[in-house]
Design a protein around this nucleic acid. Sequence first.
DNA 1: GTCAGGCGTTTATACGTATTAATGGGAGCC
DNA 2: GGCTCCCATTAATACGTATAAACGCCTGAC
Lengths: 346, 346
Amino acid sequence: MDIARRAGVSQATVSLVISGGAASDQIAESTRQAVLAAATELGYSANVAARSLKGGRNHLLGLYTFEPVFPTDQHDFYYPFLLGVEEETAAQGYDLLLFSSVTSAADRSIYAGGANRLKLADGCVLLGRNVRHEELNALVQEDFPFVFIGRREVTDGEISYVGADYVAATSAMVAELHRRGHERILYLRAIEDTEPTRDREQGYRAGLAAAGIEVDERLIQGLADPAELSAEHVLHWIGRYGVTAILVEPTEDNRLVDALTAMTDGARVRFPEDCSIALLGEPPSWTPQLRDWTRFSLPRAEMGREAVRMLVGLLGDARSTSHQVTLPCTFVPGDSIGPVPRGDQA
Amino acid sequence: MDIARRAGVSQATVSLVISGGAASDQIAESTRQAVLAAATELGYSANVAARSLKGGRNHLLGLYTFEPVFPTDQHDFYYPFLLGVEEETAAQGYDLLLFSSVTSAADRSIYAGGANRLKLADGCVLLGRNVRHEELNALVQEDFPFVFIGRREVTDGEISYVGADYVAATSAMVAELHRRGHERILYLRAIEDTEPTRDREQGYRAGLAAAGIEVDERLIQGLADPAELSAEHVLHWIGRYGVTAILVEPTEDNRLVDALTAMTDGARVRFPEDCSIALLGEPPSWTPQLRDWTRFSLPRAEMGREAVRMLVGLLGDARSTSHQVTLPCTFVPGDSIGPVPRGDQA
DNA sequence: GTCAGGCGTTTATACGTATTAATGGGAGCC
DNA sequence: GGCTCCCATTAATACGTATAAACGCCTGAC
């Protein structure tokens, strides 16, 4: 190390001065000044790799997303999370490492190339819907500190996460519909069995139970691709099952809203005149808001911030217990729900 | 390394098998299989820190902004740049390091703490209006590889940058106004003497020259804070100098557009009926676009991408020469310019 | 039988830092 | 003056990997 030579001291001394805020009180003031001067002069900065190799921390937090975030629509969905993460990371005095290379790689795996690149950072915030649970398990076993944004379960053990309270929000949505007289409420769920979907379904059932309505399993329909949702479907459900309201999960992109808009434009189905409809979440904010859909919105930025706070907490405590937090969603009244259509009233 | 023990070979052999796709043909197939088996079994993943320590490069590109990006409006201004940088970084197989800690620190200096934290990355993309030129100079002297987004000058030597062609865009804007008969064109410039402002002024003068109009120095006015721009000012300029069109530099936030909107709302001045107005740039995109201002827009995402490409090029070439590129802006017709008002026609 | 040569593997070393144990020198005390 | 003790500094080591150089062994040739 050339700083040492420059200041005429040993490498160990330099290390003590630079990093050892604690142990550097053992160092004579004159020496410390000399070292700092030399460091400044040479534009020195510690090598992260070496530092983290040694086992020290490098003051980096990582952010890894399981989905690519570049398609602009999805990016816009994830942006508020990122904003929160970035803001709190800065507030905590850390730098933020975006694992874009892994994200964009063909195989899209944390362990691509046999290397868990996440370990570059002290800890990591994870984000994304299509999680590879086996990778999460691996992370847990290595006990690498990380926090997931969104509730996630793993088979062995518990992980830390900051989730949105989909259960309560969905349940409240059912209650809201029930207050307006609806009893035949269709729930269109994503076909993949991920945690957010499970939570919504649980909230749906809980909401019905609270309203004293028995669950009609035929009113829980899987929807593989929101784009395939058409007026025919809706009219069919109305006619066949007496559906008066629909709850539907939006995707991270704008396919759902596009489909709904197409329906409305065709005037085949009117919301809420023919049928009430509410979104169990919020479509990407960039979507031109032609319509103020009834929905609930996640506190995305706050979730990002909270995840970082939690992560920093984990880093501080050596014996890191996992933490789980769910934050409440905000109900957005919108204008797509209304009373039960005349002909269908009980 | 416990994989070595597990497979009954040496650490070097493991390294050859794991990383040396090239040199691993020297390894007997049986040995390689044994090593790979052991690696899989133990859930091994290479330590990136060690790897990059040995290799010198850690495959990180940095992004540093001279202004804090958290006030939502400014963030929205910088966001497209960030998007481009992020996208191309991923495409190049690098990870992106956001220097948020430095950004948010009180002293906001690259060299905070006597250390150049930027060196954490292999190279760095810089961004921001209020540059500290002395820091740029220092970076140049260390010859740390970096690329600035926006044209920047330093006293000693040249730096690499990807800029927007403000000169041509402003000149074209003047030509556009002249085509509609305007000859008394007021230029409201930022009061700080930064490169973008200088370029706009140069473009303004060039445009006038091309149109055969002599520059009236009284028509170049400094504007410290766009918020202070009022109907009184505009009416004054119209009455006193016979101004029929205004060119104004927008800020990274929404103060300018707010001021213009306030003027319009008060109906004190109508654009373009009373006076044409065009923005020499683009306000933050999040601004509720009450009005489609005539302006030009920077290819921000493309600038970000190009900056990363250039940076990666610098990293590849050991003998790094500096490169300068300016990208053309896009004219956005909008609806805030029109013909010369009746009473003012020559 | 000896020796060259090639191949598969290992030994040794370097990367830059943090940390512990050791070293040196100076001051204080008897 | 000699001894001890303390404190500022240093030497030594470890972290996990990549790589050049060295090594041993086996084959083929003379």
